[in-house]
Amino acid sequence: MTKIPKLENITIQVRRDIVRMVHDNNSGHPGGSLGCAEFMVALYFEVMNHDKNFKMDGIGEDIFYLSNGHISPVWYSVLARSGYFSVSELATFRKLNSRLQGHPATEEGLEGIRMSSGSLGQGLSVALGTCQAKKLNNDNSIVYTLHGDGELQEGQNWEAIMYAAGNKVDNIIATVDYNQKQIDGSLEDVLPMGDLKAKFEAFGWMVFEEERGNDMESILNVLNAAKSETKKGKPIVILLYTEMGNGVDYMMGTHKWHGSAPNDEQLEIALSQNEETLGDY
């Protein structure tokens, strides 16, 4: 199988994992998780140089931070499917005594997680710290992050955005999940963000826009293009236009599946639209 179909096959299984995990608990965040499934698969199965034999310091490896921690289902699935921990552990998501907390946590040593997240707006600062540590260590690898678009309403992001440009942090590729939705409704209704591209550029960042944020080939292209612009004195952000709930028809085109779980019948529909490819957990 060639590269793109192989990655798409993994994505289908990741979608199944997401809806099954969330359904099983009747809690969790399927919408954003599904919207970022292609991106996360692209990162972990193609773009990043990383080691499934997890080391916290990540020296010599590319590092990923999930700032919008509520889309933990997609991260857990991709980590498990990459071999960081057993896929069977996905069945423990959000249950008592699980390492797979509702929002990502380091406390019980879940492989692949280097920082707790969930309280929004903090991931970019964390990533910049790691970028600076990598520079001190003469480590040429890259730090990747993912942020919600609504998350950019948190002021700490703009402290970090200012710092990164002012200090030429050029070993970061931040991605914004630009689905233009948040819990209470559309970004436009809750708090209009204006022209995000112009905002980042005004702060001194190099901005890539990808309007086909659920198309594997487009995602690989934009990530590779971004990668080739690192180490040139500017921080990089990708505005990735995604479809919340992508791959499950009734979850698309609405913000309503941000944080609600499908019932039994809805699960069956979701699964029928995503036939098993790698084997369910």
Partner: peptide, 24 residues
């Protein structure tokens, strides 16, 4: 080894946490 972050304490705390990843 000194990071002047400006008047941005939240970013400073996050960056400090991130610097530990990398052994600082």
């Amino acid at each position: 080894r000194f990071f002047q972050v400006g008047i941005a304490e939240a970013n400073m705390i996050g960056m400090a946490a991130g610097l530990t990843v990398g052994g600082k």
